[in-house]
Design a protein around this nucleic acid. Sequence first.
DNA 1: CCATGCTTTGACCCAGCGGTCAAAAAATCA
DNA 2: TGATTTTTTGACCGCTGGGTCAAAGCATGG
Lengths: 233, 233
Amino acid sequence: MVRDEVVRSATRLFKERGIRGVSLQDIADEVGLTKGALYHYFSNRDDLLRQVFGDWITQEFESLRAHTSGSGGPTAQLRDYVRYHVTSVTQNIDLYHLSFSSEAELPPDVRAEFRQLKRRSDSVLKAILRAGVAAGDFEPRDEKVMAFAIDGMCNWLSQWYAADGPKSPAQIADDFVELLLRGLVRQDDGPTDSGPAHGAVATAEYHARAIRFHSERLEQLLPTLGGPGGTGA
Amino acid sequence: MVRDEVVRSATRLFKERGIRGVSLQDIADEVGLTKGALYHYFSNRDDLLRQVFGDWITQEFESLRAHTSGSGGPTAQLRDYVRYHVTSVTQNIDLYHLSFSSEAELPPDVRAEFRQLKRRSDSVLKAILRAGVAAGDFEPRDEKVMAFAIDGMCNWLSQWYAADGPKSPAQIADDFVELLLRGLVRQDDGPTDSGPAHGAVATAEYHARAIRFHSERLEQLLPTLGGPGGTGA
DNA sequence: CCATGCTTTGACCCAGCGGTCAAAAAATCA
DNA sequence: TGATTTTTTGACCGCTGGGTCAAAGCATGG
């Protein structure tokens, strides 16, 4: 489909140069058409932008609803939320990056839709946090600030994630969750039910990772310990 | 000084409409000059951008160096880092927001400088994390991912922080730190001796102890993993 | 008073923008 | 095949962009 080809090329160019940095001529050149021909598929520039973002945002709404079913305890829900968020950002990194960076340049209706998506996602997260506090699983903290912190952590992925990096999105998500849970899950009192919640496998993996980490550090230290005039520490 | 007046007006307009959304004519109108007159103060558009961002970035480099003196333990250092970062973003929110959102529209050299600032800030944070782990204050985690998470949390402020909001930057920073530390500070009954500061021997001893601790935990988990599948998740 | 230098003007250039349109070219169907 | 519809062209319009420049204004001080 030519139309889809146009949308795809436009998306790529927008991401590379910013929305205002791409002319219709650029897009036409990329696809191998003439500027005039584009107007057979789009009534104007804003319409093109709408087609670039419209489908994606609708799909994100759907995905958000699907992945935050609300099953499981607050801990599991938070984990699911972060996993969903991280996956979403990494898989549609171009569009996320674009929406954050060029939000001011979006057509008003698209912009409004995008803001609504952000708002809904934010309220889902806040509901999870609230439920967690109510259930006694999370420390009571400032809901708003925590939600922004978590969303920021996830959204920032759009600025640094590289598909060819050493870590998969799932691994990154789990790292995030681990950081967050150790900060949110109450650990001081009560029966330590963090075991079942966390899962024995995850806990074992954590310990294995810790062993590897410390072993490597220890190895690095060996020459230092042996040599007399070494460059200490 | 007319020049400064121009820079100030340009900054304000850029923030409101994005870099590419502001023409030299707009700036001239704002200051009350003619487009031609601007060229008496700037050799071209990129030069103007350079003057808008140049001073600020230099100042940020200075600020970063000043606020990360490295005194205190890892916990204190992390707290200082987050406080500095949050303060910096909230106080220069226009320029931060602009740099993140319109990074693609900056002149190449300015862009390079900005990226360098980000990189340096990132490496400072990673050093703190590494030192914290080495000292036994922090759990061993993926340095890169944690650094991105923390920086993301802070940088995301540029997207939502409002000066007239209910929380001061300092309060927000402390909320962040609390979230982070409860995730990073070791709270379980692992190797508890965090005393010895920097000696290589002490560090090696700590790592050895940590390995033994985690190995034992891992062993304890083995029956659980092999047993009747109850908590599989 | 004029001479000197800094500052500002406003007309101008050209390139590129989004957008239009009649006509040509391809594809489709009968 | 011819008739019809979809797709594409390329010339064109009005407009705004960054950038140039000779000349005018405006201080200053000898």
